[in-house]
Amino acid sequence: MARKPLRHRQPGALVRRSVLAARVFASLFGSYAFVWGASSLLIVAQVAGGIAWDEAWMVGMLVAFPGFLAVFLWSYSARSVLRVWVCLFGVGAATTVLAAQWQLRLLAGV
């Protein structure tokens, strides 16, 4: 981009570009992983709470897209790129596994 951010320290151009690329990557794919897991967990939790699947799914979707917008913007405002990666991919993976496990227990219980 033509507009370069001001900075206190002066790291090399290559470092700056890599950090920016890492942030852009996480803002798209990390946010997707986060929303994937979190909305799945939200849906499964609703089903576990007795809400019909189709309604739970709809509520999950209604939350997922504004949720993506929020974490997408957060990934640019957060100070540390490392934290963005850990939070987005970490929470995404954890909630995905949790949702899958919970689903198994729900199906076994029926």
């Binding site: 929303v35 994937w36 909305s39 799945s40 849906i43 499964v44 089903v47 699947w53 799914w57 999950g60 979707m61 997922a64 897209f65 995905t96 949702a99 899958a100 689903q103 729900l106 199906l107 029926v110």
Partner: peptide, 18 residues
């Protein structure tokens, strides 16, 4: 939504089919 976030067709497919 079902195209962009197809959890119903992958991760949560068992619940969807049930």
């Amino acid at each position: 939504a079902a195209i962009y976030l197809p959890v119903h067709d992958s991760l949560l497919q068992p619940l969807d089919r049930q």
